[in-house]
C-alpha cells in the first residue's frame, strides 16, 4: 500500500492524496487518466513511477510540476499545494519533460546558463553553476558545440545538466532515456546517479524495468491511473511469492507437480516456477528424473511487474 497517509510531512518532498484527473474530450467519452493516486517521496529519495504507456505516469508528473490541474485530490511539494501555490512550488522544482530536447541552436553551455538566468540566478552564480553541472555530467568537451551536432545521449545529458544546475530540491524526469541506445542510456543513468549523490530528490517515470530498478530507491507500479504496488525492487519481487525462478523446458506434463512448489506460469511449453531457495533442489531433481532440462535464476522485476499488472488486468 502507498505510504502517503502515514508519512511524516516534514520529511516528505512530495505528498499526493487521492489525485484524480479526467480529460473531457469534445464529443467523445471522458478519459480517466488518474483514478485516485496517493504517494509520497521523502527528501533525498529517488522514486520511480513504473507503468505501461498510458498508465498515467506523465499525467501525474505534469500535475506535480504545476503544468496541469488535477480534477480532484491534492499534491504538496515541500509543503506547498501545487494547485493553489504554483508560484511557491516552481522555484523548488526542475523538470525534464518527456522527449524534451535542448535548443538546437544553443550550445550546452549557453543552454544551461540561459535557463539559470531565466530562473533568476545572478550572472556570476549562473556561470559557476553552469560549469559545475556540465562537469558533473561529463559534457565539458562538447560544451561549446551547438546542440544540433550532439548525439542523442549528449542532448539528453544537456537536459539533465540544465536542471542539475538549478540545484532545485525536487527534480522530475519524465522517461529520461526514451529512444536512446543502450550506451547513451547508461551514460544518462550515471548522470542521474550523480544527481542523487548531489542530494537531489528525484521522481522519474519510466516503462523500462531495468531503469526503474537501477535508478530508484523505491517504485510505484502504476496501471490505468491507479497505484497497484509500492516498495523497493526487492520487496516487489518478493510479492511474486519467491525469490528464485526455475524454468522447466517442456514441463507441461508435470505442471501440476511443479505447482506444488510455488506459483507457475507456462510459456511456449516451458513452465516457470517461482519458489524459495530451499525448494530449488527438489524441482531440479524432479525435472532431471523426467529427462527435462531446468534452468535456475533470480526473480526479476519484470516478473513482479507482469504479475502485479496482469493480476489487475485479470480483475478488471
Amino acid at each position: 500500500m502507498p505510504r502517503a497517509s502515514g508519512a511524516d510531512m516534514a520529511e516528505d518532498a512530495l505528498r499526493a492524496r487521492d489525485v484524480r484527473k479526467t480529460y473531457r474530450t469534445r464529443g467523445g467519452p471522458a478519459v480517466e487518466a488518474l483514478r485516485g493516486v496517493s504517494l509520497s517521496i521523502r527528501r533525498g529519495e529517488r522514486v520511480a513511477l513504473l507503468g505501461r504507456n498510458g498508465a498515467g505516469k506523465t499525467t501525474f508528473l505534469r500535475i506535480a510540476s504545476t503544468l496541469l490541474l488535477p480534477t480532484a485530490g491534492t499534491v504538496e511539494v515541500l509543503g506547498h499545494d501545487v494547485a493553489a501555490e504554483p508560484d511557491a512550488v516552481r522555484p523548488l522544482i526542475g523538470v525534464v519533460p518527456q522527449e524534451g530536447k535542448p535548443f538546437f541552436h544553443l550550445t550546452p553551455r549557453e543552454q544551461v546558463y540561459a535557463y539559470l538566468r531565466a530562473r533568476g540566478v545572478p550572472r556570476e552564480e549562473a556561470h559557476r553553476k553552469t560549469e559545475w553541472a556540465l562537469g558533473r555530467v561529463g559534457l565539458e568537451d562538447v560544451a561549446d558545440r551547438l546542440a544540433i551536432t550532439l548525439s542523442g545521449g549528449q542532448k539528453q545529458r544537456t537536459m539533465v545538466a540544465t536542471i542539475l544546475a538549478t540545484e532545485a530540491p525536487l527534480l522530475f524526469l519524465d522517461e529520461p532515456t526514451i529512444g536512446l541506445d543502450p550506451f547513451a542510456r547508461r551514460a544518462v543513468w550515471e548522470t542521474l546517479r550523480q544527481l542523487a549523490r548531489a542530494g537531489s530528490t528525484i521522481l522519474l517515470t519510466t516503462h523500462y524495468l531495468d531503469e526503474a530498478e537501477a535508478l530508484s530507491d523505491r517504485l510505484y507500479i502504476v496501471e490505468e491511473g491507479r497505484v497497484l504496488a509500492e516498495g523497493t525492487a526487492d520487496s516487489l519481487k518478493r510479492q511474486v511469492g519467491g525469490t528464485i525462478r526455475v524454468s522447466v523446458k517442456d514441463g507441461a506434463g508435470i505442471a501440476d507437480r511443479l505447482g506444488t512448489y510455488g506459483s507457475t506460469v507456462t510459456e511456449d511449453g516451458t513452465v516457470h516456477v517461482v519458489t524459495g531457495e530451499e525448494k530449488v533442489g527438489e524441482i531440479v531433481d524432479l525435472a532431471m528424473k523426467r529427462g527435462l532440462s531446468a534452468t535456475v535464476g533470480p526473480v526479476t522485476l519484470e516478473e513482479a511487474f507482469l504479475r502485479v499488472v496482469g493480476r489487475s488486468i485479470d480483475e478488471d
Partner: peptide, 13 residues
Amino acid sequence: DHRLNEMYHASPL
C-alpha cells in the same frame, strides 16, 4: 518539437 516550454513554465519564469 522540444517540449522546452514545460521546462520554463515549471520554473519561476
